[in-house]
Amino acid sequence: MSVARFWRKIPQRYNLIGTRCESCGRHYFPPRSFCPDCRRGGKIVEYRFPGTGKVVTHTVIRAASEQFENTTPYVLAIIQLDEGPRLTSQVVAKPEDVAVGTRVRSVFRRIMADGESGVIHYGTKFVPVKSEK
């Protein structure tokens, strides 16, 4: 991923910045500047998702693409944030600790790096909440 392309979405990647339509209450991640339900009647404002949610479905990636090769096996999941939107992310946990419905919260982790000399891409992953002390 080019430096500009990664940088452009830093607010979404680091801080789960999306939007919310104040007219109908619907939340959007990634952000939408136009509410498909309310259309011109909608009032869109920025919304930062606190990052709590649950696992909708999951898998364990054992054969990854190049940039992720050295971190396998890892848990990939579709997570539903409490406000409604879904996203795809990794869950940092042992595979046996992740199931459909597991509650999760967001953490800040390294996603990938552009080789040994390129830019490091940071972003948001999730951890199960039950493993909290």
Partner: peptide, 11 residues
């Protein structure tokens, strides 16, 4: 939003 997070097609 899928590939960048480590999703593969089989995944």
């Amino acid at each position: 939003w899928e590939g960048f997070m480590g999703a593969t097609f089989p995944g």
